[in-house]
Simulated scan of single mutants.
Amino acid sequence: MYSKLEKELQIRALQDSLSVIRKIAGWTMEDLGEKIGVTKQTISNLENQKTQMNLTQYIAIRAVFDFEIQNNKCNEILPEIIALLLDKKHEYSEVDQKKIDEATKTISAAAAGGINGAALTSLSGSLLSSIVAGAAIGAPIGPVGMALGSIWLSKILNSKNGKDKK
């Protein structure tokens, strides 16, 4: 379960990475907005830090990304990028996090430019392998990674009467 501060950090991490993750998913702002029931402008405001993401938006966005991961096996990069930028972010030093952020921006730009499949997997592996030694970047995430989908939700929602358990 996340403390109030950990919830805020998770929400901030998603907001900071939203544009990158959305592009790697292959979606426009309008596509993501339609999936969670908001306008393209709302997505733009979140990505450009004009409005702060709330818990409801966080849950909706994570849910559609998890759904995409489970239903689009062709996009092998998406689950790994989400794991690096959100679920395992705390495992890397600040210096490595900055390198990961830069590498994922390059990967998302390539994805937005139409590069996908094996070419995107290769690019991702070459950019991230030296940063995240031992990580299986570019390889299918497998059942352990898929289980993360339910872990983040249970952690962020696990509270009693709206207050974090001690």
Score class of each variant (00 low, 15 high):
130 S>Y: 05
5 L>N: 12
56 T>Y: 08
82 I>R: 08
151 I>L: 14
42 T>H: 14
100 I>K: 00
44 S>C: 04
15 Q>S: 09
16 D>P: 01
11 I>C: 02
2 Y>L: 15
87 D>S: 14
153 L>I: 09
23 K>N: 11
161 N>W: 13
33 G>P: 04
96 D>A: 08
88 K>W: 11
98 K>V: 05
88 K>T: 09
42 T>R: 15
50 K>M: 13
146 M>I: 07
86 L>D: 10
164 D>S: 11
61 I>R: 02
98 K>F: 01
118 A>V: 14
130 S>D: 15
75 N>T: 05
5 L>Q: 14
160 K>T: 12
105 K>E: 03
142 G>I: 04
88 K>N: 15
24 I>P: 01
155 K>P: 03
49 Q>G: 08
34 E>W: 06
125 G>M: 07
11 I>M: 02
157 L>C: 05
71 N>L: 02
146 M>W: 05
159 S>C: 12
80 E>T: 15
135 A>S: 08
111 A>C: 13
2 Y>H: 10
161 N>C: 07
147 A>E: 05
143 P>A: 12
39 T>I: 06
103 A>W: 00
130 S>H: 12
164 D>Y: 04
128 L>K: 01
104 T>L: 12
134 G>F: 04
165 K>R: 11
57 Q>S: 14
149 G>N: 10
55 L>T: 11
71 N>P: 07
88 K>I: 07
